[in-house]
Design a protein around this nucleic acid. Structure first.
Lengths: 288, 288
DNA sequence: GAAGAGGCTCAGATTTTCTCACCCTAGATT
DNA sequence: AATCTAGGGTGAGAAAATCTGAGCCTCTTC
């Protein structure tokens, strides 16, 4: 007699979320990163789900996974549902702490662009707390609890163009008068923006096969400090060294500037209501 | 400096689900029942959520809880999101096991109404598995994994009217010729349908202050068996004793029948696609 | 003034969930 | 060929979550 056990336990929500992330992002590792867990955890979740359903959701290949027909059919529904849930959580948070604005950004932007502007923002909006979280990649704003994200990208409102050019300490400037001089000077390299040197060189010295040599930093702000200390030449992002240039801690001996395709942009998951703290912060950051 | 910890951990999904259920059902106990946990678990979830948000979601009163303004504002969003998620899960299940039809019903209906019809159904649809889960109250079909629910109610398609009348074993029939005889005969009482006796008496013997006396059963099917064994008089639901009447195991000595306001109805969460197993089962059950 | 409904609490048990360290594969690099 | 790298899979053990159970409290109802 086909009588099921008393309570057919329903599927674990976390496993469903792992499936959705893996399916949407096209891989377990990417999903693990979005969810903030190890890939093994995602593997386990998907496996558990498949065992429960007695059906495959992904086809495992050696270079990654691919959705099965079943997985592809149900993915959109789950994405929609989890988006709705994420938005609901966001509203819940916003309603329960309306005076806190959460901003996600790159570590470099947090330290060199946002930080100098904070005192002014706070003075402008007493009572509003501004919380800044640094991360390497833009978050999925439909899921993660941020009001604003500030990243180089194509989406969102333009905050500043990204112009790059070499800078160094004043005492080093005499040794940097032509692009070719870079071959014999230490070039400070930020690990996340290593291509900056190539991008600039491609325009400024198109003939030369230039390869920057010098210390690598994982924190851009640290590279900026080292450049100011005279450790070498840095490929600067204009908006991030404006302060150092104004104070004379850094100089830009070469006139050539290169505009990167990705501009600095401010982006929010849903329309900001005029007058609300997040909208006021956005407005203040966009102001010249 | 208001820099948040690396990863602002997001809200636990189970706690959100507990909140949603409690808010929608208006109480922690009801939510606990829907979720299949103890009330203490729901209390803990809501408490954890409130602690995380640093905001109250419910106002605790001595006779239950009530939503705060905040809770009431965000509830609809969560209900929508979890409904969408439940539906997605439902589709996932349906797509991964398209040949199983899950039916939720009362224990009494499972044993006395559905069970006799199963052999016919199976013969009619070879390859389709029919899984029956008995429960005391209709499930929330947007959340629980059932294709069809068969319950007395007002929603859904009519399966049968609920007519009640006293029945007993043939050898007892001689002692039951007038309603008044019930006062001196043992009345078998089903604990879930105890009011049946009052409902019937209110029509059949409006003057008398009738109180049935007799053994109480928690399983209606057991009461039916006992009645057939001659243990007393049962207030029968017509559709549930049809078999026993036909076989002569029970007789209905009194002509008076009372129609209950709740008819037996078949109900499904979403429109059934014609030709799909669930729809075919529904059609077969609705057929005379 | 007893009983009942609804919630709360806290300790302890149970189950989920996660990490860690390691293995495996196929394609790319040297 | 040998090595790297990217992406996954595994299994043991640790950590965290979730749940239960028994008892308490408060108010309402009989």
């Amino acid at each position: 007699m086909p009588v099921a056990p008393p309570r057919p336990t329903d599927l674990p929500l976390t496993a469903l979320r792992a499936f959705e992330a893996a399916a949407r992002l096209g891989g377990f590792s990417a999903a693990a990163q979005e969810l903030g867990v190890t890939p093994g955890a995602v593997t386990a979740h998907v496996k558990a789900l498949e065992a429960r359903l007695a059906a495959r959701l992904f086809i495992r290949g050696p270079k990654g996974v691919e959705l099965t027909a079943l997985g592809a059919r149900v993915l959109p529904e789950f994405t929609t549902a989890f988006d709705a849930l994420g938005l609901a959580v966001h509203h819940l948070r916003a309603e329960s702490a309306p005076k806190i604005v959460h901003i996600a950004t790159l570590p470099a932007l947090a330290q060199l662009w946002l930080s100098p502007r904070l005192p002014g923002l706070r003075a402008q909006m007493p009572g509003v707390e501004i919380s800044i979280t640094a991360m390497e990649a833009p978050p999925n704003l439909k899921r993660a609890p941020y009001d604003l994200s500030l990243f180089p990208g194509r989406e969102g409102r333009l905050v500043a163009e990204e112009d790059i050019f070499p800078v160094c300490a004043p005492q080093l400037a005499a040794r940097l008068t032509r692009p070719e001089d870079l071959a014999v000077l230490p070039c400070l390299i930020d690990s996340a923006w290593a291509e900056d040197w190539q991008d600039w060189a491609a325009v400024a010295m198109p003939r030369a096969a230039f390869r920057p040599r010098g210390p690598v930093f994982s924190l851009y702000a640290l590279a900026v400090e080292e450049a100011a200390n005279g450790a070498g030449v840095l490929m600067a992002h204009g908006s991030l060294v404006a302060g150092h240039l104004a104070r004379g801690q850094l100089v830009a001996p070469l006139p050539q500037r290169v505009r990167l395709p990705m501009a600095l942009r401010l982006w929010s998951a849903r329309p900001l209501k005029a007058g609300h703290p997040a909208e006021r912060v956005a407005r203040a950051l966009l102001a010249p």
